[in-house]
Amino acid sequence: MKKINALGIKHPNSKILVENILKQNVEDELIINLKKSEDQGLEELAVKYGYDFSAETKGNELVVRMTKKDIEIEKLDVTGETCPGPVIIVGDKLASMQLGQRVEIVSNLKETLDDLIISAPEMNGSVVDEGETNGKYYVVIEKVESEAVSQVTKRDKVLVVQSNGIGNAERAYATFIFSKAALSMGKKVTVFLLMDGVSIARKGNAAKVKHPAFDRLDKLMEPIIEQGAEIFVCELSAEFRGIKQSDLVEGTKLAGAATYITLLSDPSFAVVNF
């Protein structure tokens, strides 16, 4: 998919430019931003080169989309996936897509898609179509640029505070499943382990936690670290329990109260406690 900004280019140069791009014959889809009325001749070019043509007005601009006739939108069937599986799958997919690309999500549960529709803007997605066909629900999401929202009000980071540790398996699991979902939605994730929560970071401890329905806890924690989540371990809580930096799993680090307070004071963080 190629997306070009041709806002300053007037007809007939807009047509000449688009034809030269189509002649390269390398793209499945071409999206062109133009000023209104500068799209003369583009529909006939689409026909000439075997593309479907659509044009959408956005304010003073026109978004022209040319899609090769034999190209289908990729479909993801999330039927059977339980929360937060669908949002992780769709978030990862959107992260790998280019602006303007679309993906169709299918499920037998409308609630699953409703959840995706609500969270789509947070994943830089825009819902362009939704409905029901052959007994299944579908939603088509287009990758869009993140909205220009003030950094002061935009909460694009998540702070997961965990204070229960391996003694409460459900909360321990929730810490990393929730973090995974947030990462998939494009959020920056920071986990702060304090009080009993520090036990999760002690070498070997997470590997002892296994629920029959889920992977071992360490198998959930490792990819979160690999994907860039920062994991801080409260220095005081660690000292209280005789835990040193050398006792901690790779990717976690001791941090003091100042770090914790700084994180809590940062309005760009949404805070969740487990």
Binding site: S14, I16, N20
Partner: peptide
């Protein structure tokens, strides 16, 4: 190879 016209734009 493919003919046509060139379009150049600049400001």
């Amino acid at each position: 190879e493919k003919g046509g016209r060139l379009s150049s734009d600049y400001s």
